[in-house]
């Protein structure tokens, strides 16, 4: 595993902020961000729509391993130099249900949270 593709919501400001933060961190694995609305997603991962990238964050490795929702978040942390230890902790059976709950809450309300935080929606631009 050398690279992770992060399929995020290009219309959600919070997701854009998270992406910017992730991209700034020193990483063990290369992270490539693709908004799920982009046609590139279907071209690169045929049949990915069946996994509903619009519902939850999806992370796909260069080997085709798919992680959804909280697992996808944990994999993002796993890619980062400073947070890999945290990915191990959060993946522990005792903490995973909590991680899942927080991720689901955030995913479901991401547009609302973005509004509360007064984040401006980023324009859909796959080159960014």
């Amino acid at each position: 595993m050398k690279r992770l593709f992060v399929l995020f919501d290009g219309e959600c400001a919070l997701c854009g902020r998270c992406r910017e933060w992730l991209a700034r961190q020193p990483a063990f694995l290369e992270l490539e961000f693709i908004p799920f609305q982009s046609p590139e997603v279907r071209a690169r991962f045929p049949g990915i729509e069946a996994l509903h990238p619009e519902e939850q964050l999806l992370v796909v490795s260069d080997e085709g391993a798919v992680y959804r929702g909280p697992q996808a978040w944990i994999m993002c942390l796993y890619a980062l130099r400073e947070y890999r230890a945290w990915s191990q902790r959060l993946a522990h059976p005792a903490l995973l249900p909590w991680a899942r709950r927080v991720c689901e809450l955030l995913s479901e309300n991401r547009l609302q949270v973005s509004r509360w935080m007064k984040l401006e929606a980023l324009r859909l631009d796959p080159t960014r």
Binding site: M1, A43, R44, F45, P46, G47, I48, L51, V60, S61, D62, E63, G64, A65, V66, Y67, R68, Q71, I74, M75, Y78, R84, S87, Q88, L90, A91
Partner: peptide, 15 residues
């Protein structure tokens, strides 16, 4: 050197 903390949930072909 640590392996991924979680197994993948599914597998897709990558173009």
């Amino acid at each position: 050197r640590l392996p991924p903390p979680l197994p993948p949930q599914t597998q897709v072909p990558v173009a």
